[in-house]
Nucleic acid binder design. Structure first.
Length: 293
DNA sequence: CCGCGGGCCTGAGAGC
DNA sequence: TGCTCTCAGGCCCGCG
């Protein structure tokens, strides 16, 4: 589910509850997530403070006073809820959408800020791991991760270099977290539409030319940055699972130009195309075959 | 290197 | 109502 804008929305919601606060209690209700919770998970957290809550690609990183970093990933269906005071975790409690959601409250943090933070994940593709002091950069989740798309050092030259000699499709390359961190199926489709580029185009056609990036590479980087910034401003996209930490919905899904819009008229002004769905690498792609070349 | 298929899990929606 | 099937915002592995 969550891509960069959704994870950033979650980070902003969790920060007031977690930054500067200590873990008073940690309850690992279901340790069998995508990867099992580390041994002594609760013991390593309780009593330590969160010095900062960061995001790296689709990962949330809580730096701790102990020197550890708590690495969290939402997988496809993970969400966090922040409630004031002690949480009622029984079925049907107010932070649940339905009574049966309670069985998916897998990890619960009681923070010294007075907030309770609840991690809920029906599919359990999400996970929480711990990296010790100085272990974060070499951690398997971080070692090969690409640049942050909203940082200045992610520019057309950087993207173009990543496209050099790549026979894969543009879509596959943008989904590769080693090339750029945080894009997923929705925002790749949306960025390619904004840039007027076909998801099927060979990535190598955006490679460096005469020592510099091409206009297409510049357009694509600009499109990536704009769609992510717009989506963050909207609180992300709520399709099935994503909620803000207060339970409210994001609303960027109303701004999708192509994602899940097969059969609709292309929204580009003057374009007469119709949005099509195709399957690439086993996943749905949505694009306009008329204005995306 | 590349795409594909399968796997990890559960739930929602469509069609019958 | 219930069954079966497909699909889902992520990521990993092995195969050819």
């Amino acid at each position: 589910m969550p891509e960069l804008p959704e994870v950033e929305t979650v980070r902003r919601g969790l920060a007031p509850a977690m930054e500067g606060a200590r873990f008073l209690d940690v309850e690992a209700r279901r340790p069998d997530l995508r990867w099992p919770l580390p041994p002594q998970f609760a013991r390593r957290l309780v009593g330590t403070a969160v010095t900062s809550l960061r995001r790296r690609g689709k990962y949330l990183l809580a730096d701790l006073g102990s020197g550890d970093t708590l690495i969290m990933h939402l997988g496809m269906s993970g969400s966090f809820r922040v409630v004031d005071g002690a949480a009622d975790l029984r079925p049907g409690a107010f932070h649940h959408r339905r009574a049966k959601d309670a069985v998916h409250d897998h990890v619960v943090f009681a923070m010294s800020s007075g907030a309770t933070v609840i991690f809920n994940d029906p599919r359990r593709f999400g996970f929480m791991l711990l990296a010790g002091r100085d272990e974060l950069a070499a951690h398997p989740t971080m070692r090969e991760i690409g640049p942050e798309p909203l940082d200045e050092d992610f520019d057309a030259a950087r993207l173009a270099r990543a496209c050099n000699r790549k026979a894969a499709s543009l879509k596959a390359v943008l989904l590769d977290q080693k090339v750029v961190a945080g894009l997923g199926n929705i925002y790749v489709c949306e960025a390619l539409n904004r840039a007027g580029l076909s998801p099927r185009r060979k990535a190598s056609t955006l490679a460096m030319r005469d020592g510099g990036p091409t206009p297409r590479a510049r357009a694509l980087v600009a499109a990536i940055k704009s769609v992510l910034a717009d989506a963050i401003e909207a609180g992300g996209s709520s399709l099935r699972d994503h909620r803000r930490t207060d339970g409210d919905l994001g609303y960027f899904q109303h701004s999708f130009r192509v994602y899940d819009r097969a059969g609709d008229k292309c929204p580009r002004s003057g374009c007469t195309g119709v949005v099509r769905r195709l399957v690439q690498n086993g996943r749905s792609t949505f694009f306009c075959p008329v204005c995306q070349k």
